[in-house]
Design a protein around this nucleic acid. Structure first.
Lengths: 217, 217
DNA sequence: CGTGGAGTTGAATTATGATTCATGTTTCAT
DNA sequence: ATGAAACATGAATCATAATTCAACTCCACG
């Protein structure tokens, strides 16, 4: 599970300093990007001396990996909390989407930091997505067995759903202020539930796209 | 449309050299990543001297922007060709997906290069996706007016569909050798068409996920 | 064939930032 | 209390690579 080489700090002080560095890195990597963020930027942000960095990490790369793994773990925990107790799979999807958008809004840097990892440590980057996809696919397979979900390859379904949330989060949480997320959420859920083929029966001018009602993510 | 400052070369020789640099950059950025690719790497790959670079580009960034814009233009052209003449919107989606996967397979660097741009010139990065989303949304809106497509916000729909293809391309074209793309394509199209809710009627054990038949993208 | 503008060259300059390390300071088990 | 281990420091070292530029080559045109 541990992907860097330096041992954990032995004292409470060490723990604290190390933690500061991780948090500083999250901010600095998010703001300036991995390559443009200097170790010195990070130590300054953390309020420690330059040399201190090398007490805890062998290099910048190890720190990025730690940050990405950490973000993944936090997001997974938040998603788990959001869907806890629900049994209706489409409700789970909705709440999962909502929680993801909320997390993204709270950690705008998430995307940038995770995406950076692709060019720094591709294994870490893939691990990040796999760590979501694997349990996601298992849950979808279970929902298929219980007859709630159409029988499509669960892994394909998982990546497709992750793609939807990733892109909608990027467009509407990161980029756009304009639109309210509730409307986006509704549209995404409807697409995921029924697909984009027009409903049978009625042909031409249907009602305008439905507007939001729920609270914002 | 032109996002760099240096003027176009005046002679055929200049055109050729410039083009070599662009092609070299595509390969080198894809292989090493933007930041780790040195100008010298690029000029070597192009078979020209270091100083020549600055005749055609003010800096590395301008070259990346050119490469990304170029990739976008080529992919758009390829997609347009793939769907030309079709009127059934869901056939268009299928052929669009297929063409995207094929392009990705042929230019494995696409993802890496485009994603790099997020940290180098965010405007370029957004422009890339918008340049697909805008016409996509317009086409979807038209298909809604003609009663082929469910009335969901067209832009949301466009980004959701792009997210699906992006993630499936990443997972199954870039990462996985295992699975054949035809099966992935079928599953994606079925999801997009009907959604993931289990079909009405039948309850529990449906048939296993359908296998592929079509040619690989 | 000679001239000028376009193109090419690569050594030299310069800036940046990663990494080391010898020297202090703090912590904590005994 | 106390000494060794852990931690913190930042100036100095070292490597890399962006950018400049003065000299050179190419070639279309007269």
């Amino acid at each position: 599970m541990n992907h860097n080489s330096t041992p954990r700090p032995a004292t409470a002080r060490g723990q604290r300093t190390r933690q500061r560095l991780v948090e500083a890195a999250e901010a600095v990597f998010g703001r300036k990007g991995f390559e443009r963020a200097s170790i010195s930027d990070i130590t300054q942000q953390a309020g420690v001396a330059l040399g201190t960095f090398y007490v805890y990490f062998p290099d910048k790369q190890a720190l990025l990996v730690e940050v990405v793994d950490g973000l993944g773990a936090r997001l997974r925990a938040e998603l788990a909390r959001a869907i806890a107790g629900r049994t209706d799979r489409l409700e789970v999807e909705r709440e999962g989407f909502r929680a993801f958008f909320a997390f993204t809004a709270r950690h705008r840097l998430l995307y940038r930091v995770v995406r950076q990892s692709e060019f720094v440590d591709e294994a870490c980057f893939r691990r990040y997505y796999r760590s979501f996809a694997a349990p996601y696919a298992r849950a979808l397979a279970a929902a298929q067995r219980s007859g709630q979900v159409r029988r499509l390859d669960p892994e394909v379904l998982a990546y497709a759903l992750m793609g939807i949330t990733d892109f909608l989060g990027m467009r509407y949480v990161l980029w756009g202020r304009k639109r309210d997320m509730a409307a986006v959420l509704d549209a995404a859920v409807e697409l995921v539930r029924h697909g984009m083929a027009a409903p049978a029966g009625g042909g031409r001018p249907g009602p305008a796209p439905r507007r939001a009602r729920r609270r914002t993510a």
